[in-house]
Design a protein around this nucleic acid. Sequence first.
DNA 1: TTGACTACCTGAGGCATCCTCAGGTTAACT
DNA 2: AGTTAACCTGAGGATGCCTCAGGTAGTCAA
Lengths: 198, 198
Amino acid sequence: MADTGPYIAQRPKRADGQRNYDAILAAARRAFEADGSDASLEDVAGRAGVAIGTLYRHFPTRAALVEAATRDGLSELVALAERPADGEDALETLTEWMGQAVRHFSTFRGLVGILARSMYDEGTPSHAMCAAMHRGGAELLGAAQRAGRVRADLTTDELFDLLSGAAWVRENAGPGRDGGPRFLALVLEGLVLPDGAR
Amino acid sequence: MADTGPYIAQRPKRADGQRNYDAILAAARRAFEADGSDASLEDVAGRAGVAIGTLYRHFPTRAALVEAATRDGLSELVALAERPADGEDALETLTEWMGQAVRHFSTFRGLVGILARSMYDEGTPSHAMCAAMHRGGAELLGAAQRAGRVRADLTTDELFDLLSGAAWVRENAGPGRDGGPRFLALVLEGLVLPDGAR
DNA sequence: TTGACTACCTGAGGCATCCTCAGGTTAACT
DNA sequence: AGTTAACCTGAGGATGCCTCAGGTAGTCAA
């Protein structure tokens, strides 16, 4: 799937530009994975076989590069929230989605922080995606609440706080440990209501 | 209370040295509070009225400076865990301590990350303090578990994961929001057992 | 009080990274 | 083939990290 740029595919312009765009993005993904969101952009440019100015031409900001590097994964997460599942399996759908969210939020070190900031700061490259995730999460949470399987007083903002916390723990888990899933399981046991309540 | 240096008061040496040490520490606290743990050390030195080399003389590493800047607060937290409270109010003691821990962990932006890394990485300036906190937390958790008020399968490591997550959320809460306390409350409701179980 | 001794301080400087911009290059279209 | 402008390059100013050679001054003993 050729990624053509932010929001609207309006940059099928010069072939060399597209090629460099793709190369930079691939290099950035590798660098972020290895060194976190504060990886050296000059290093990224070097690995992409491109001068530093070219990188800044395509991605005027580090945040823009992060946004582009995570767009596919996060939009996948948004799509996953779109299949509405009221009724019987609303809780299962929600919990499965939460697991996916935590995984995506901790794609590389530093991402959760960027997303958390983008969530409430419009004018950030990732804000649109965050807003979409917020809507999707609200949908799933509402369904599970209507089904009587999740405590009714839980806000969507609070849900994302929990997801962010879990993702951060996963990012920063000590060597050998993997705090994410267990964290989420513990949290969930405090949110879920017994099945009989319905 | 004059802070005389790491671990053992073995540096009541020259008066100017002590004076600069204190000035740097005060400036660092202010800078960390304002800009997070990655504040400019050259700026800190400037605000302390000292050359950059002097800062590095007293604190060879940014981590050492962070350790010194947080030592008082964290040792207070450790002391708070030392008063053993078995029996009736074990749960209350634990929850109160957890609230204090979250507050101290989020003294400034970036601290939780440093502490989380120090927890399992000996050779870090903050490791000793982290180990002490780990022991204290284990004590309080054990008491609450023996009193039958907290689920028995919760590890001390997991407790600290939850505390770290809450602290991170508090650090990164959106403007106006204060996710920490609510986060902790939600988590606790998943950990606590009904009183009747005793 | 004076004379070491040495802990202490200074700040230039090498290195990394960020980000900009003036000028050269070339893909694409006529 | 000629024209246009999108694209690329890389030098360079700014900031921050950290080190080190050389100068300064607190302290103590005589």
